[in-house]
């Protein structure tokens, strides 16, 4: 390995700090869309740790599933539940911020 173990220790420490900060943010954030984004951050940090643990298969699965599909499922459900709040966006697209009940149906 060309990378020294000292460097890997720092990378693991950085990934751990990001993951734990994201996990605490999931519990404390008021906005649910931001909480879903924090969950994706935790999954990406875990994916980085899986690469360092010499498991590329698992890292690929965690990145595709945790950051991709799981985030899409959660965000879609939040839209259906009416918890999709985009602050300050008055754009004329379908994600209007003033929907309080379900979706545009």
């Amino acid at each position: 390995m060309t990378v020294g173990t000292e460097f890997l220790d720092w990378v693991v420490l950085l990934a751990t700090v990001i993951m734990l900060a994201g996990a605490v943010a999931v519990l404390l954030l008021k906005d649910y869309l931001a909480a879903v984004a924090a969950t994706s951050v935790v999954s990406l940090g875990a994916s980085l740790l899986f690469v360092i643990l010499r498991a590329p298969d698992v890292a690929l699965t965690e990145a595709a599933v945790g950051a991709g599909l799981s985030g899409v499922i959660m965000a879609l459900s939040l839209r259906r539940l009416g918890l999709w709040r985009i602050r300050g966006s008055g754009a004329a697209d379908s994600s209007a911020p003033d929907e309080r009940t379900g979706d545009a149906d």
Binding site: L69, V72, I73, L76, S77, R80, L81, G82, T101, G102, D103, D105
Partner: peptide
């Protein structure tokens, strides 16, 4: 399977 499940989620009417 996952495509069908997410499509059902997208079509669901919550109200």
């Amino acid at each position: 399977e996952l495509a069908g499940l997410i499509a059902r989620l997208a079509e669901f009417e919550a109200v």
